[in-house]
């Protein structure tokens, strides 16, 4: 049989998984995923390369006239200080994406580890960790953010860390539940009776299995965090230096600005909307995709 890999892209009809297993196995991520992924890649690339891109300085006033509409010279128009909105949207992506990515990274490192420890060892360890997670979940997120950012200062690391702390609890719960399910599986018992240590079982056997649902959650979590950062900006609690999409939206959302130059708010809103949509969509498709892999195991 010429069955090579699982791509199924150029495989002949008889090796198509759908034919083989007799069930509708969706093996492809679909065009929607690739569009969403492309958007994310473009946004990330633009944000990373912003200093080297041939775009106007986002803080330079008088690049165009005040409140110029979108046009050839300033694609996204200018704001009330005559700053180029196109350049500002790209620079704004830097803060939004950094906050989105690093806070979820923190959440996964801390929450994922705690969840795995709770799910693997159970007993008293589980009870302590689960209780702490419930406390964290029960604590009003906004109050926590207000407290920490208000006390520690409105810097990028503090905002990122605060949102990261808020991400710990839900991630820990997912990681605990996944670990519980997998540590019931006999391959964990099999590894143990072959002499594997607890640490080895957790890292080599359980971690790869737990990371899959977490990977999809990363994208969804980033989407949520970007929106939450926008909300914090609305309360005047986002980063003081520099600006994020959220802060740009706030600046463009006074009734007068909205009347005279709606593009000032609309372009960052659009960028945020598209990015959050793309992250959600891609994350969701990835989750489904890997669920199918699970299905394949049950069937095959």
């Amino acid at each position: 049989m010429g069955q090579k890999g699982l791509s199924g892209m150029d495989a002949p009809v008889q090796t198509d998984p759908e034919e083989q297993f007799g069930v509708a196995v969706v093996r492809r991520l679909g065009a929607g995923f690739w569009i969403a992924a492309s958007w994310i890649v473009v946004m990330v690339a633009a944000a990373v390369l912003a200093p080297w891109l041939p775009i106007a300085d986002p803080n330079e006033t008088g690049v165009g006239g005040r409140m110029d509409g979108p046009g050839w010279s300033n694609w996204f128009g200018t704001d009330s200080n005559g700053r180029d909105m196109f350049s500002r949207t790209i620079w704004g992506a830097r803060v939004s994406l950094i906050v989105g990515f690093f806070s979820i990274l923190l959440g996964i490192c801390v929450g994922g580890t705690l969840g795995m420890i709770a799910g693997y060892f159970r007993g008293i360890v589980d009870r302590v960790i689960s209780f702490s997670v419930f406390v964290l979940l029960a604590f009003p997120a906004l109050v926590l953010a207000l407290l920490v950012i208000g006390l520690a200062g409105q810097t990028l690391p503090i905002v990122t860390m605060t949102l990261g702390i808020l991400a710990i609890a839900p991630i820990a719960r997912l990681s605990r539940a996944t670990t519980l399910a997998y540590s019931e599986r006999e391959f964990v018992a099999a590894a143990r009776v072959l002499g594997a240590t607890d640490r080895r079982i957790m890292i080599r056997e359980l971690l790869p299995n737990v990371l899959i649902p977490m990977g999809a959650l990363t994208l969804l979590g980033m989407a949520i965090t970007i929106v939450v950062e926008g909300g914090l900006a609305f309360l005047g609690l986002s980063v003081e230096e520099g600006f994020s999409w959220g802060k740009m939206i706030v600046l463009g959302s006074s009734p007068r600005t909205l009347r005279e130059g709606p593009w000032v708010a609309m372009f960052p809103i659009g960028a945020m909307f598209m990015t959050v949509l793309a992250l959600n969509f891609a994350g969701d498709r990835l989750r489904e995709y890997f669920d199918v892999r699970e299905l394949g195991i049950g069937v095959g």
């Binding site: 599986r185 099999a190 590894a191 009776v193 002499g195 240590t197 056997e205 299995n209």
Partner: peptide
Amino acid sequence: MRQLWGSEMAMVFQDPMTSLNPLV
């Protein structure tokens, strides 16, 4: 126990669907 497990005592489980790590 770890010195016994694997080298002295081993076990074959009931369900081969779950006794192998799906990702390895």
